[in-house]
């Protein structure tokens, strides 16, 4: 990877982490309404996959844990923060919230409040890309919980039947809400299910940006060249609960261990500074810039106006 691409990847991961850590502390103040599902710990997945995608022709669909995917697909961070605060300056003018951040102009087809909601949509986005013939691909992110939804399994089948330029990224963070994937995923491996649908399946270490990046490169390349869909199971850990406020009484001490020993940002930093590709100063500078960005995003979001009665009944239809 070029330095520039590495710097960009680091900035993306750092932005996601900073965004989520800040949300975690802001949520505790009670200023943020509703449900928030944090992506901290999983940054290498969204970043490693979306590094191969462009805004114009490639589409992703995300999940209720969607902030990281949005940031990796270049959705404006300040607009995202404002959306989470329910402000008119938000990505969705305050009408969607954390679970429905979308930006079609960036090929971001939405976070999704329905587990398994995205994969069918991605089949359609892939069909559109295929018919347009510009080499576009569509990527569905879903979790270990979503991997058990009929919609996901139907979509894996349809993607093969229609030979779609689609990539399915199963982010296995170990828990569907409070239920362990080791218990809920029949057969134990999400990636192994790929074989049943006649597509390549692969398991990668989700703490390792480079592993994800490489696996996704191959899958995206195959899709762009008409080779059909791929399923990648990315194994990782979420640093926080299912939602903010989750006491996580079902978990043991794995988070602290992951933060200390496996963290994707640390590993990335160690590798690129260790081999002399980048300097610590370069990365520190990014850290500082990102921290300022998130500070500004929170301050601006808090200062932005809330939607009013005039906004209540708009945007239901284009024409009615």
């Amino acid at each position: 990877m070029h330095d520039k691409a590495l710097l960009r990847a680091y900035r993306t991961m750092r932005t996601i982490r900073e965004f989520e850590e800040r949300l975690h502390s802001e949520f505790a103040t009670g200023d943020i309404p509703g449900f928030v599902h944090l992506y901290a710990g999983e940054e290498a997945s969204a970043t490693g996959v979306c590094a191969h995608l462009d805004d114009h022709r490639d589409t992703i669909a995300s999940t209720h844990r969607g902030h990281g995917h949005c940031i990796a697909k270049n959705v404006d961070v300040k607009a995202m923060m404002a959306e989470i605060y329910g402000r008119t300056t938000g990505s969705c003018h305050g009408k969607g919230g954390s679970m429905h951040i979308a930006d079609l102009s960036k090929g971001m087809l939405g976070a999704n409040g329905i587990v398994g909601g995205g994969p069918p949509l991605i089949c359609g986005a892939a069909l559109a890309a295929k018919l347009r013939g510009e080499g576009g691909v569509a990527v569905a992110f879903f979790g270990d919980g979503g991997s058990n939804q009929g919609t996901t399994l139907e979509s894996l089948n349809l993607a093969t039947v229609w030979n779609l330029p689609a990539v399915f990224i199963a982010e296995n963070n170990g828990y569907a809400e409070a239920t362990a994937a080791t218990w809920s995923v029949g057969g134990g491996s999400i990636a192994a299910r790929a074989a049943a649908f006649g597509m390549p399946g692969r398991t990668v270490d989700g703490f390792d940006f480079f592993a994800v990046h490489e696996a996704a490169a191959e899958a995206v390349e195959r899709a762009r060249n008409g080779g059909g869909p791929t399923l990648i199971e990315v194994q990782l850990t979420r640093y926080y609960g299912h939602f903010e406020g989750d006491q996580q009484t079902y978990r043991a001490g794995e988070v602290q261990q992951a933060r200390n020993e496996l963290d994707c940002l640390k590993r990335f930093r160690d590798r690129v500074t260790g081999d002399g590709t980048l300097t610590a100063a370069q990365l520190d500078q990014i850290d500082a810039e990102v921290a300022r960005l998130i500070d500004d995003a929170v301050a601006e979001a808090k200062a932005a106006p809330l939607p009013t009665r005039a906004d209540l009944e708009t945007d239901v239809y284009i024409q009615y």
């Binding site: 669909a61 079609l104 909601g117 949509l121 359609g124 979509s155 349809l158």
Partner: peptide
């Protein structure tokens, strides 16, 4: 090229139609 049979898989193909609609079809 524009008349597609589907598996008996309504969630997948109705969802695909919806997703395709958001992407220009």
């Amino acid at each position: 090229d524009r008349v597609l049979d589907t598996p008996i898989s309504e969630s997948a193909f109705i969802g695909a139609a919806v997703g395709a609609a958001t992407r220009g079809l």
